[in-house]
Design a protein around this nucleic acid. Structure first.
Lengths: 242, 242
DNA sequence: CGGTTGTTTGACGCCCTTCAACGAGCGTGG
DNA sequence: CCACGCTCGTTGAAGGGCGTCAAACAACCG
């Protein structure tokens, strides 16, 4: 039973810019269905030319690239509200892969209608650009993290960002944030080895700053964490929802 | 004396998707002037809310972010054809800084007209999204480089990419590519220390793979370079020109 | 109960950083 | 004209953060 756009659980969250009723109707027309996938399922593959675009409705995943020798770089994590497949939408093919970490449900859009949608809804087209610009900005921050921050800074920064994003979409309850990823995923986010990631996490736990176990992330000392992360304290940028 | 869009030296390069005459005319209308700046001049500052957008017409520069403790991460290099300021165009402010490395001349667009332009030219709006998606893709590749490649791989990869991009916009003559950056810039691109960058470059030079001196980049052994860089050999993605 | 996946811990070593110093090129001013 | 300062490239030495190797442990499952 597909969710109707006007009942979308996301578009009321204040992370997203609010949509006018007619825009919701437009999205409803653009939306061709809903997809539900199990943990571990690949959604889009590097080099594929998917006929579909998605926005994550529920669940979490990750986008990654693999070098030819098998090393993997996680580009970013996929949260509810993320738009997936823009690259396939405008370029010929995907340049990275996307896979589900938890069970996910996604709104499905028809790529063939993408251009029509864009032409008929310039406001939404603008929002698409906006979205891409936000993505670009976030990747720039990740670059700065991997390039400049030490392992503990980087891990602190990443956990903080995950927590905040989770808060913004209502995933946090009682200070508990679902954290379904593996340590290996976090390591591949940051270009660190699994072992070093593990030990650094252990140190953060000992210092009572964050605890991450059994798929739950908890922040025990927000102040120390933000300081360690060298977070610049800028609020999470608002973004459109597709 | 401003360059007219229809005489733009760039839009015939095959890196860019070609523009129809009426699109050129539209760009001409959107363009409010031309800016010429000296090496070292900051063009956009992090946190600024610039009223202008640019596309680089001639010259080279770089985009970077600085952490609060002064560490700098170069997000990417700016080449002719790059569109600058999209973030300020859709979000409130710039999230990184841009500065000129060589003398640069840029086409200037009025940010206030951005939305109108977008609405009146859905095709160009689409191209804007396309551009942002290309940027995002390139940042993803940089992430993989910084995160996964070793210093010599990363440096090889970066030099190779610079050379190819230079070729694509006609900057290479006789196998010589202008390389106006400092070693510190390259180091800040890759999250490496200046010293290590220098020594790694020296090793590449000794092995007769690339030589970079006096602002000129030369590739002596393209095959070895591509192999070292673990380049996946995909062609440079075509992109729109604004 | 063996097999698998993910976390944890220890030992060892290297890639890379940091500190330090020197040289080359160049513009400035005495 | 040369001394001086500044920037940038280069090189050596020392140390540490992080990677690699290896193994043990816990949880889950057929």
């Amino acid at each position: 039973m597909a969710t109707e756009c006007k009942n979308c659980p996301l578009h009321t969250k204040d992370l997203f810019v609010s949509l006018k009723p007619e825009q919701l109707a437009e999205m409803q027309r653009f939306k061709v269905g809903e997809l539900s996938i199990d943990p571990g399922t690949p959604l889009l593959m590097e080099g594929s030319n998917s006929p579909q675009l998605f926005t994550a409705l529920r669940g979490m995943g990750l986008r990654y690239k693999t070098l030819q020798d098998g090393r993997r770089q996680v580009i970013n994590l996929v949260f509810p509200g993320d738009f997936i497949g823009l690259q396939a939408g405008v370029m010929k093919e995907m340049k990275h892969s996307v896979e589900a970490t938890t069970h996910m449900t996604l709104c499905v859009f028809d790529r063939g209608e993408f251009w029509n949608f864009f032409r008929n809804n310039p406001e939404r087209g603008f929002d698409m650009t906006w979205l891409a610009a936000v993505e670009e900005h976030l990747l720039g921050e990740s670059l700065a993290t991997i390039g400049q921050r030490t392992a503990s800074e980087a891990i602190a920064w990443t956990l903080l960002r995950i927590y905040r994003r989770g808060e913004a979409v209502g995933l946090v309850t009682n200070g508990h944030m679902p954290m379904p990823y593996k340590q290996q995923d976090l390591a591949d986010c940051l270009g660190l080895s699994l072992v070093h990631t593990n030990k650094t996490l252990g140190r953060l736990r000992e210092r009572q700053i964050v605890s991450w176990s059994e798929g739950q992330l908890q922040i025990n000392d927000m102040e120390s964490l933000a300081e360690l992360a060298k977070d610049d304290g800028e609020p999470m940028p608002k973004r459109p929802l597709m």
